[in-house]
């Protein structure tokens, strides 16, 4: 069962908030986290690019674009979407860039999207960070879906965990429970994502020929840092 309901009705234009990061509700933050997770989970398919061209997609981008941290990324996105005609070339360009950066094709000039690669002694995958991320999933009663055969310290999984924790805060009955879920978000963000996201960005920046993923990683870093500040204030 997917955690986000794919079939939910699109929100009305007027419902869309255009807040600064500090004003986001837990539910809104969950949406941003899930979006960012999707961005790094896989190459962008033709279907995904088409979805951004549809009215809902345009609205979604507009909503994200209002946030300072995400603005550069959204701007790039809008350019990509607007470039229009050569959809398949855009798709393949990004897929090639994705494979080079995140699937190992680029060799040293790549940016493995795993915490273990940055925090383990020998720069390997499936190290302590992976085990600890897995432990947290166990604790939450969740597992990485079979359709995504990646370790639990993959950036998209960690971002999905943040989305899930934010959703639980949003759904919490009463302030004490909400505070608890916010504290868990803060701990996870600080202990996991913020511990390696900067070197991850630097690797993207050094190796990305397309520019798209370097921008995405920069926006990601900025959003995570801003969100970290927000959580410090509220959790």
């Amino acid at each position: 069962m997917p955690v986000a309901e794919a079939g939910a009705a699109p929100p009305e234009e007027s419902d869309l908030p255009a807040p600064a990061e500090s004003d986001l509700s837990d539910g809104e933050r969950a949406i941003v986290y899930q979006w960012l997770a999707g961005l790094f989970a896989r190459e962008m398919s033709l279907e995904t690019l088409s979805a951004y061209r549809a009215a809902e997609g345009v609205a979604l981008l507009k909503q994200f674009g209002a946030m300072a941290a995400l603005a550069p990324l959204v701007e790039q996105f809008q350019g990509l979407v607007a470039s229009g005609q050569r959809v398949s070339a855009g798709d393949a360009d990004l897929a090639g860039a994705y494979a080079r950066l995140f699937l190992g094709v680029g060799g040293r000039r790549s940016a493995p999207p795993y915490e273990s690669a940055y925090t383990s002694e020998r720069g390997l995958l499936f190290q302590e960070a992976s085990a600890e991320s897995q432990d947290l999933l166990d604790e939450l009663g969740l597992h990485v879906d079979e359709s995504f055969p990646e370790p639990a310290d993959h950036i998209a999984v960690q971002l999905s965990v943040m989305a899930e924790l934010a959703r639980r805060a949003e759904a919490a009955a009463g302030e004490p429970a909400r505070t608890l879920w916010r504290a868990r978000q803060r701990a996870f963000l600080e202990q996991r994502l913020l511990s390696w996201i900067e070197p991850f960005y630097e690797s993207c920046d050094a190796a990305d020929r397309s520019g798209f993923y370097a921008t995405a990683a920069r926006s990601l870093v900025d959003f995570l840092k801003a969100d970290g500040r927000r959580l410090r204030d509220t959790a």
């Binding site: 986000a4 949406i31 965990v161």
Partner: peptide, 17 residues
Amino acid sequence: MGALGAVAPSLLSPGVA
């Protein structure tokens, strides 16, 4: 958030691995 579901399907499912 139908658009979100289309561009960012969930990677997590319930149940302990």
